[in-house]
Amino acid sequence: MSKITVENLSIKFRIYHDRSPSLKDYFANLFTGNRPAAYSDFWAVRDVSVEFRSGDRVGIVGHNGAGKSTLLKALCRVYESSQGKVRVDGRVAPLLEIGAGFHPEFTGRENIYLNGSILGYTDAQLRLIEPEVIAFAELEEFIDTPVKYYSTGMYMRLAFSLATAVHPDILVLDEIFAGGDAAFMERATARMYQMIDQANIMIMVSHDHRLVSSLCNRVIWMDHGRLVRDGAPDEVIPEYLGRGAHA
């Protein structure tokens, strides 16, 4: 059974200040000891404890900078915790920054293996799914062309097709996106719904509250890095829209 346990999770980023003092200010600060701080710490997630179990379809809402995407990346091991723990039981498919691992000089086929290894697939798995990835992306004619010559739609079709090729135990989505023409968008949307249906756990971030309401049986509201509410969509979303969306 798939499960994610988050215990007292906090994630801190160090923000460096680009200060270029004049020579006069430098010597004045040197002798007075009044040196400005070179950096400050920002807590993107603060003391979050939550559990996700099989059957959960969870939407995470909150204003920009609330810590939603940072929390997702912690679940996917992109970010390490500064404090607390994250325990994941099950295979995770992170659809966060689709195509982020592509190399522009490599062909589409080469990028399947490069990006696939980043996503955690073995060479044997990639050999099995390669034909289906290429066919779904409709790139048979261009698969051995360097992706730097691809249009944006072609690039995103390949990235989406690879990222969704294997059905995971745990599906993590950050602002569902698929690039391409209307026909591809229709097929991509159908595949996304199929993946959501087949995943044991689905966790998503989206600003589309109607989509969250339609797909999720649970909603988490985050604000300034902290978990504010965790409950049913028809309870949490109206409260967020009434009090939190413009906070």
Rank of each mutant, 00 (worst) to 15 (best):
G99P: 04
A28K: 15
G101H: 01
Q83S: 14
Y79W: 02
E97L: 03
E97A: 09
R127K: 15
R14C: 12
Q125T: 14
V133L: 02
H103K: 12
N29K: 12
F52N: 11
L139A: 00
I98Q: 03
T122E: 06
L139F: 03
R109V: 02
G67R: 02
E97Q: 08
V48T: 09
K85G: 06
I118D: 00
I60K: 01
K68V: 05
A44H: 09
A66K: 05
L119I: 08
K12V: 15
Q125N: 10
I118Q: 03
S54K: 13
Q125I: 07
W43D: 11
T32Q: 04
L126N: 12
G108H: 01
E141H: 10
S22Y: 04
F13R: 02
N29C: 09
G116W: 06
A37C: 11
N115T: 04
F13Y: 07
E130R: 11
T107I: 00
I60Y: 09
V92W: 08
S81R: 07
F136Y: 05
L126G: 12
V58P: 00
D89R: 13
S20Q: 12
L96Q: 04
G59S: 04
S82C: 09
K68E: 07
H17I: 06
F102T: 09
P131L: 01
V48W: 06
Y113N: 12
K85L: 08
H103T: 11
N34D: 15
T5R: 11
A135D: 14
P94V: 01
N111C: 04
F142G: 00
R46I: 11
I15Y: 01
L71A: 03
H17A: 11
I98M: 07
S117Y: 00
Y26D: 10
T107W: 00
I134Q: 01
V61L: 08
D47T: 11
L119V: 07
R46Y: 11
L23G: 07
T70C: 07
C76S: 15
G120Y: 13
G33L: 03
E7P: 07
Q125K: 13
S10T: 14
R77M: 07
R127C: 05
T5I: 15
W43R: 09
G55W: 04
L114P: 01
Y121P: 15
G62N: 01
N34W: 12
K85V: 10
Y16K: 09
